[in-house]
Write a protein that binds this DNA or RNA. Structure first.
Length: 562
RNA sequence: UGGGGAGUCGCCAAGUGGUAAGGCACCAGACUUUGGAUCUGGCAUUCGCAGGUUCGAAUCCUGCCUCCCCAGCCA
């Protein structure tokens, strides 16, 4: 609880702290993360997970993982497995508290029977269309169902026969008897059970009636001894129903539902339906495409659990709907990876450089720091020889102002190696394209230090041609070109046509040969990269997580703008 | 027009009657064998608007405005 005071406050933390202080619950603080197994987890879920597990941990409580599997036609075990994997990857653990709403089907049924006995629920024969008609509108009250006043006995009999499978889908429902004139539409005799002759991924064909969310959720919470049922804003309207059910059924110290705003990010979509469309219609390569905001996509892209958790922590918790700038997340991965990712040299768009005064056949190795942020990370030896590759954009025949890189007659330092000067530019006579640079190497500058102390402002990354390893590098950009993917009404029209650029002729330093899938690196002067699962030792594949901050690009942009 | 929510810097967000934290972004500078990182400084006389209460209000009261959610036998 000490942490509770050291972290920035938020209204949920305050409510829970107050409940602890007043002893509102004679049991430990208990929350739950209740995903429906009908899709993959995305960045929005990360916030809910962080809050659910975080609040419990802060107050010495527990958080359950509970699958809200009350709709058999939408759900599947494939998602169950995936969700568990993602929650663990994010860094949370439910120990042995893995539950399913479907585990409670029998109990839930008994609670429904109890409600009927109390005269608080009835079997209704209205068709779906009729129910809608009777419900009224936002501004007009509804009308009571003609079946509303059936006897307890008749209701009990009918409900039992619903369970027995005597009626077809949609023929009848069990409804709560509350108030058809309520301003809150959720209180206009909400449906508690519907008939659905469908095979459930866990209970098989044992049931042909299934509880609705509104019925199953509060009761599942109560059954598990949840104290604080945290959910998103769209359930605010359901809270009176949540409370009505628990009160009517006589639960002591019932759980409290508290709603908070979801996490939204700029340039990002979190609608399950639309994400599915992107996958199914081939706009991305799958649910784990590195451009997807799914946890699987983020992982493959190279985002770390720590960065995602940190985002959730720093954006706070409240009821104000907002859209967080994706740059915040990008900043946080950089912050994390800057501390942890080993530095390495990779040339993405190679330009050959021949060091004319460096002895042919000679080679040597230079120690280069693995991470200047972490002296403990040590150094590695990087091989050097007469012919190297540098980045094409690190050379300019007619350098613009403040260009610190290679140009005819100019000097530059090769990171950790030597200072070189460009003497000659070799071009393809047919196209005029620069194909090679011939440079001389200041042999006195081993390690990159000028012997006479002269200042060399530019430092380039490089790879020795003879030693380099080929690689494919996938450069990702935002999936959508507009901050709000929904802008203009058609999210597909807002897709960024340049969200993926595949570079195939890349060369990386030999130390990368042993890199394993999902390993993180900083490619010096480029950005953070992650080994794609497609990678093999013969053909390395890297995904760009995020580029380094690029002050030079900013200067150029400004000079172009005027 | 019914019910439920929300409005503090470009974005996120503290603040709970005592005179506007912090982060992102941005700007300026220092340093730099990553034009990275780091460091320093700048960045809301004002809290949706209008009244009122008070010595004093973003915080209390009144009225208004704007935005979001709800009419699935989805969750």
């Amino acid at each position: 609880m000490q942490e509770a005071t050291s972290k920035p406050s938020n209204f949920i933390r305050e409510i829970v702290a107050e409940d602890v202080r007043t002893g509102a619950f004679h049991r430990r603080i208990h929350t739950r993360f209740p995903p429906e197994p009908n899709g993959y987890l995305h960045i929005g879920h990360a916030k809910a997970i962080t809050i659910d597990f975080g609040i419990a941990a802060e107050f010495g409580g527990l958080c359950n993982l509970r699958f809200d599997d009350t709709n058999p036609i939408k759900e599947d075990t494939e998602y169950v497995d995936s969700i568990m994997e993602d929650v663990r990857w994010l860094g949370f653990d439910w120990d042995d508290r893995l539950y399913y709403a479907s585990d409670y089907f029998e109990q839930l049924y008994q609670y429904a029977v109890r409600l009927i006995q109390l005269g608080k629920a009835y079997v209704c024969d209205l068709s779906p269309d009729e129910v809608r008609e009777y419900r009224g509108t936002l501004t007009e009250p509804g009308r009571e169902s003609p079946y509303r006043n059936r006897s307890v006995e008749e209701n009990l009999d009918l409900f039992q026969r619903m369970r027995a499978g005597e009626f077809p889908d949609g023929a009848r429902t069990l409804r709560a008897k509350i108030d058809m004139a309520a301003g809150n539409i959720n209180l206009r005799d909400p449906v508690l059970y519907r008939i659905q002759h469908a095979t459930h991924h866990r209970t098989g064909d044992r049931w042909c009636i299934y509880p609705t969310y509104d019925f199953a959720h509060p009761l599942s919470d109560a059954i598990e001894g949840i104290t604080h049922s945290l959910c998103s804003l769209e359930f605010e309207d359901h809270r009176p129903l949540y409370n009505w059910l628990l009160e009517t059924l006589g639960f002591v110290e019932p759980p409290k539902q508290i709603e908070f705003a979801r996490l939204e990010l700029t340039y990002t979509l979190t609608s399950k339906r639309k994400l599915r469309q992107l996958v199914e219609e081939g706009y991305v390569r799958g649910w784990d495409d590195p451009r997807m905001p799914t946890l699987k996509g983020l992982r493959r892209r190279g985002y770390t659990p720590a960065a995602i958790r940190e985002l959730c922590e720093r954006i706070g918790v409240n009821k104000t709907k907002g859209v967080v700038d994706i740059e915040y997340l990008e900043h946080l991965v950089r912050e994390d990876l800057n501390r942890h990712a080993p530095r390495v040299m990779a040339v993405l768009r190679p330009l050959k450089v021949v060091l004319t005064n460096y002895p042919e056949g000679q080679e040597e190795s230079f120690p280069v720091e693995n991470n200047p942020e972490d002296p403990q990370a040590g150094t590695r030896l990087v091989p050097f020889s007469r012919e190297i590759y540098v980045e094409r954009e690190d050379f300019a025949e007619n350098p613009p102002a403040r260009f610190f890189r290679l140009a005819p007659g100019r000097e530059v330092r090769l990171k950790g190696a030597y200072i070189i000067r460009c003497d000659e530019v070799v071009k393809d006579p047919a196209t005029g394209e620069v194909t090679e640079l011939r440079c001389t190497c200041d042999l006195q500058s081993r390690g990159g230090e000028a012997p006479d102390g002269r200042r060399v402002p530019g430092t380039l990354h490089w790879v020795s041609i003879r030693h380099a390893w080929p690689a494919e590098v996938r450069l990702y950009d935002r999936l959508f070109a507009t901050e709000d993917p929904e802008a203009g009404g058609d999210f597909l029209a807002n897709l960024n046509p340049n969200s993926l650029e595949v570079l195939t002729g890349c060369w990386v330093e030999p130390s990368l040969r042993t890199a394993k899938a999902l390993d993180h690196f900083q490619f010096l002067r480029h950005g953070y990269f992650c080994v794609d699962p497609d990678s093999t030792p013969e053909r390395l594949v890297f995904n760009r997580t995020v580029a380094l901050r690029d002050t030079w690009a900013k200067i150029q942009r400004k000079s172009v703008a005027g």
